[in-house]
Nucleic acid binder design. Sequence first.
DNA 1: TAGTGGTCTAGACCACGCA
DNA 2: GCGTGGTCTAGACCACTAT
Lengths: 234, 234
Amino acid sequence: MGAPEYIKIVEAIKNKITSQELEPGDAIQSENLLCEEFNVSRMTVRKGLAVLVNEGYIYSIPGKGNYVCEPDLDQYILHYNEMAPGNERGDEVRLIEVNVVKPSYEVSFNLEIPETKHVIVVKRIFLKDGFPTAYDIKYIPYYRGIPIVEKEIRYATFPEMVAKKNSIFAMTKKLKIRAAIAEDETARNLEIPVGMPLLVVEEKLLDEKDKPIGWGMMYLAGEDAGLEAVASFD
Amino acid sequence: MGAPEYIKIVEAIKNKITSQELEPGDAIQSENLLCEEFNVSRMTVRKGLAVLVNEGYIYSIPGKGNYVCEPDLDQYILHYNEMAPGNERGDEVRLIEVNVVKPSYEVSFNLEIPETKHVIVVKRIFLKDGFPTAYDIKYIPYYRGIPIVEKEIRYATFPEMVAKKNSIFAMTKKLKIRAAIAEDETARNLEIPVGMPLLVVEEKLLDEKDKPIGWGMMYLAGEDAGLEAVASFD
DNA sequence: TAGTGGTCTAGACCACGCA
DNA sequence: GCGTGGTCTAGACCACTAT
């Protein structure tokens, strides 16, 4: 075979796990035994085991051995593209408001700033075939000299709006997803009747010290608007 | 410092990235240069770089070099615990139906089986403080000899219901999340008025050949019922 | 004390990208 | 042809677990 030795080791152990020959909690044979079995050096065995650790199949206990993981049933990968909300790639973004305002209690609470400080509010509507599919409101703490360029903001993701000061690599993004009913403001902007179901995605951006640097909501309309998430082992 | 050499290399490069000294697309110095800079062997440098690759900071192009990634803005980790829907750890699970039935068109379509084959349907209600918080319907293809033990099913997660035949490690789980309005069946089971907002989590289980082995819905009631997702680099 | 995993070395050969 | 990353070896020392 052309495959590297460590990949063969990965496949062999993976097979034992998916075929239930090895079950969660079971020990893998020791690294030295694997060296003999596959006729490779210990570094090669360890490289293979490292792959299995990264993929969540096994874990190591120093001085004891390697063991098959209890699979994590709760963890999924969610794909959420802010600029294509509800997986509907829209064809138009309408910037309906960019302003510097005093925050409401809710905004100051979520951004953890006093109500006397100002914030930038950005309101946008995403459209497809002329119909609104999503209504977006974001708040960013205001500081002197922050660039407010409407053309940039219109097509910017939330992290990009604040990325001038903070590296995206040093940011944490948190989402809360829930259901709601369209009320006056959301219904008007989404051009739907009051009482229709909405998917609400609340988004909070935190810097490396867990201080909020952005907070906002995305309201998704339409029965077909949804988010998708996947959990699997590869 | 007591930290291993390869961790020091990881931290040093991570700092350059989060401080924006290195930006997405930039090249890291070559592995041989890193060996000199940190006075370590090449294997140690490569171990550090492997960590950065796994964490999504850098990627390698054989024959060229290592480069800083464009951060993936769309990918989040979603925590969804089936047995604690909406992050509300309930105190009671009411099994309201376990049956072998012929599937509706929708069910046979999603399980990719003919409408003449039978399926097991499981309906449960999750309660907290005596009030329903979630209503759950799951469908599993029926085959002769499948154990239907009500006590087991009541507290089983969806993967556990089908895990007798298939290893959880060989399964893929897909979720679709959307908003809906409570209608007669859901409203009655959740004891809420028709017209209230619901968060709907559609779940499909696939085996290693991508054949469906389970399909169903979870309806979450209440304004505070929600899902949470996080994206960050560590 | 013997066995385990964790770190590290100083070499080696290969396939690939580039000038 | 030279530098790059990808794979691999045959050792070594350490901290830890078990008995």
